[in-house]
Amino acid sequence: MFSRAQTILIPVISVALGLLIGAVVMIASGYNPIEGYAALLKGSLGDAFYIGETIRQITPYIFAGLAVAFAFRTGLFNIGVEGQLLVGWIASVWVGLAFDLPKIIHLPLAVAAGAIAGALWAFVPGILKARLRVHEVIVTIMMNYIALHLVNYLVRYVISDEQNTTDRVPESASLKSPFFEALTEFSTMHYGIFIALAGAIIYFIILEKTSTGFELRSVGFNQNASEYAGMNVNRNIVLSMVISGAFAGLGGAMEGLGTFGYGFIHGAFSGVGFDGIAVALLGGNIAIGVVLAAALFGILKQGALIMPLESGVPTELVEIVIAIIIFFVASSYIIAYLLQRFKKGAQ
């Protein structure tokens, strides 16, 4: 439907419009947008510490974006990344706390536990969709809340002794990186970014270089044609959700083993999973696009934290900007239409 140039142009225009409208909001509420955006840049890329924090923020975004994007490519909308991320988080922390193993076994085991938990959580909507044609959007939303309440219960009564947080995972299951911490003036940057980038490469290989990926994408394009070609559509639907959930669970493991190093009771969702929808859309559901979009969102989110101090602009400005970006990317039809009109007008 869209030309190659448009697939690049539409996200860029959407981001530009989002930032522009963000500036208008700042002016309308009496702030200086130049100061605001300067503070945002300083707070995300200004020095080594901020860069470290930004990279740490990008890590779960990459996974959340990959999770949403993977399901999208099979024609599924996984809005349950938030919940899958939470169960992945708590599973990895649980394994981290429950065993006493050498790091070379313990850390991979804990990370894998996160992926498996996320995959299991996404298996439910997958199998319901495949077997009973239940729409995955509603089921994944409901699963988010079940995850939230279940995880809070586990933290409070099962993993900890009626505490609001679990213990810290031991060194042998931790992604914490003294090297990066020293390099970035003791930011919370950890080794997770490498796992995330590896995840993006695995995403690319599965979807673009394997016959499984071909089938998954084929089902996304046209279920009937895929069925006719002899593919097992139901199996592919479940597989897509499971892999998507595994990516989400890994995102949770990054938070549980890296950023925080423990699990805690969530009053509400972290928002990383929902932001993943924006990351996937903006990144055009391809690996490199997701990484770039995750980088952008990481910069926005991290930079936002310093905005109130430096320029007085409330942190939530970035939420508004992200919402506007989602609107424009989702409404790409109208942007493409306007681009076409613009071109015709120029001739």
Partner: peptide, 17 residues
């Protein structure tokens, strides 16, 4: 669904902002 997600972001962002 995407538009609805954006509505949720926008409402919360704008309200708290």
């Amino acid at each position: 669904v995407v538009s609805g997600v954006a509505i949720n972001f926008l409402a919360l962002g704008l309200g708290v902002y």
